[in-house]
């Protein structure tokens, strides 16, 4: 019961603190600005480019959001009032993780929709850009999942917001690249499903580590 309640609560928090608006409007706008600057993307459909761009841009946003939120709340002793209630500590982290992931995914979908609309409007046939873009998008989502989990782990372990952001810049990119790069390294033919599975597994490992640290930490 508490997990659902906490998840809805986090979403409400992102809505009330206007984070959702900045994400949902901001990410598509940034993508459009990117297109205006680069203009000619050659044979790559604009939507496919967006799907790739989302992994790094959306991922950084997600991990910074969650790290800053957790470090601030930890340092401010906000969790004390939760821990003295019948709430499992892990529920707080999982609720926050899914709230951030859902928010960033919706922002990514909005940005991607703009890309599709642009490609379609500029005369591209859907079959030309749809399949490749969707595969890139799913891999981007799995990278976003890893990125967000990195944010949770750094959030619970980092001594300050600044250290947390530095660690994300150092480590977030590298870890989130795991689902994308490992299948290439292994030279597997089934790149897409393996990348997806690796994303899920890496996310679970990172979240488990974060929960262990959170449970042991004196907050």
């Amino acid at each position: 019961m508490s997990l659902t309640l906490l998840f809805k609560d986090e979403l409400k928090g992102f809505y009330k603190s206007k984070i959702m608006i900045f994400l949902w409007v901001g990410l598509p706008v940034v993508v459009l600005l990117f297109h205006l600057i680069t203009l000619d993307t050659g044979p790559i459909p604009f939507s496919a480019l967006i799907a790739i761009l989302l992994a790094s841009l959306g991922g950084t946003l997600a991990s910074v959001m969650i790290t800053v939120s957790i470090v601030n709340e930890r340092k401010g002793h906000v969790y004390d009032l939760f821990f003295v209630r019948p709430v499992r500590r892990m529920d707080i982290l999982i609720a926050k993780y899914f709230a951030v992931y859902v928010c960033v995914t919706i922002a990514a979908l909005l940005a991607l929709t703009i890309g599709f609309a642009y490609d379609y409007g500029t005369g591209g046939a859907p079959e030309m850009f749809l399949e490749g873009t969707l595969e890139s998008f799913v891999i981007s989502l799995s990278m976003l999942a890893v990125y967000t989990a990195v944010g949770v782990l750094i959030g619970v372990a980092s001594p300050s917001v600044l250290v947390g952001v530095i660690l994300i810049i150092y480590g977030g990119n590298q870890l989130s690249a795991v689902p994308m790069l490992l299948p290439v390294v292994f030279g597997t033919s089934s790149y897409f499903p393996l990348a997806f599975i690796l994303g899920v597994v890496t996310t679970i490992i990172l979240l488990t580590l974060a929960i262990i640290v959170f449970n042991r930490k004196k907050l």
């Binding site: 009330k16 401010g76 002793h77």
Partner: peptide
């Protein structure tokens, strides 16, 4: 029921 010394809430609430 518990009131901590420096009670804190999430700012958006």
């Amino acid at each position: 029921g518990y009131l901590p010394q420096d009670v804190a809430f999430q700012e958006w609430r």
